[in-house]
Amino acid sequence: MAGHNDSNASEKKSNEATNDLPTFNAENMQSNMKIIYYSRTFMSIIGGVIAGILGFTSLTGFIFYFLVMAITSVGLTAKAGFSIHSYFSSWNQIVLDGFLGGLMSFVLFWTFAYDIVHIF
């Protein structure tokens, strides 16, 4: 009996989950993701320039990148008014998306600024 009740409850839950999934407004979600990518790319470029001017090398620079991305995530969360779930389906979208693409821009501008300031 208890098992039957449990299965009923889980079925209800899964039903709710399947009902929840398609109810997101895809257009607005895509627009939100575009905003996230825009902010992250710009912040990684700025972070790269700052790391280059400060003269960071090797591991320090990558730690600096993690720091900048963490600050950007906090900024985006604050922009969403700390109510993530009315704008995004999960935390991963605001914390992780655009991380690797930003790393490429970061390394590019890091070496660029370092070369201009410290080598030439």
């Binding site: 825009y38 950007t72 704008y87």
Partner: peptide
């Protein structure tokens, strides 16, 4: 600037 320029978030709840 990075947080302001791209525009505001839109709600995904229908």
């Amino acid at each position: 600037a990075a947080l302001t320029v791209p525009g505001n978030f839109l709600s995904i709840h229908p």
